[in-house]
Amino acid sequence: MKKTVIKIENLVKRYKDLIAIDHFNLQIEEGDILGLLGPNGSGKTTTINCILSLLSFDKGSIEVFGQTMRPDSYDLKRQIGIVMQNVAVFESLNVYENIDYFCGLYITDKKLRKQYVEDAIAFVELDSFRKFYPKKLSGGLLRRLNIACGIAHKPKLIILDEPTVAVDPQSRNKILEGIVELNRQGATIIYTSHYMEEVEQICTRIAIMDCGKNIAIGTADELKKMIKNSEKISIEMTPVSEADKKNILTLPHVYDVSYDHGQLLVQCSAGRHNLVHILGYLQQHELSFGRVYSELPTLNDVFLEMTGKELRD
């Protein structure tokens, strides 16, 4: 049976009249890569700060590795690594020194620390930049340094708060691959982002947040199954009559039909051969059409259906 790494119950955090976290519950098991997905301002970072005991909260409880997290829980803190949303490194220390400094806050044994620092440099592939000062690094390399500083001490729990913001695609892929590798090495990971593709790509479980609430939690497939939409079919064609729309709506599993900007959009619930049925209808009624697209639902569709708004709003 997997151990519970983090257990949050009924967490409430207010900023005067604004409720930032609203009775939030979450349980993270050992070995998870949990994605905290939500738009900006949904409460992801606030939740992280509460877990780390940086922020005080109004109600609820947070347990890390089975113990209540407090500001002076040094034994717990020793097992946690954090990669901040904002790059937090010293401008006047070079890459090696930055990693060594932060690693030294956790590891006192010099020999072991040296090994850990070398491992971290190798992990983020900054070996040829070890003497570089942060201002000489590109945005992507700087993010990688930020990650190295957070994980060099080989923590059991790693919290990454939007580590790929403003990062080029190549560096982003490196970072994502690195996170999966850290998990493979045994670390439990909390990954916050508002990029659904990233979360879907690397996370074993996903919690969707909005307005400080945990809307849904599960694997990507489980979340997608929670919504009605399971296939979205777009067909380029000339305007369709209202009668044809009504007829398409009667086809099996179709629950919504609309026409916009030269495209017929058909929403289908779970079921097989949806595309075959629709194309069959168009041919039968001699309705000419161009390109056809069939899309499976994304996490954005999940979010849209659950909250009535886009994830990227």
Partner: peptide
């Protein structure tokens, strides 16, 4: 100070 800089936040969560 965690409320003034990201470095402060990072240092505040270290076990020291």
């Amino acid at each position: 100070q965690a409320n003034l800089s990201a470095l402060g936040a990072r240092k505040s969560i270290s076990p020291n």
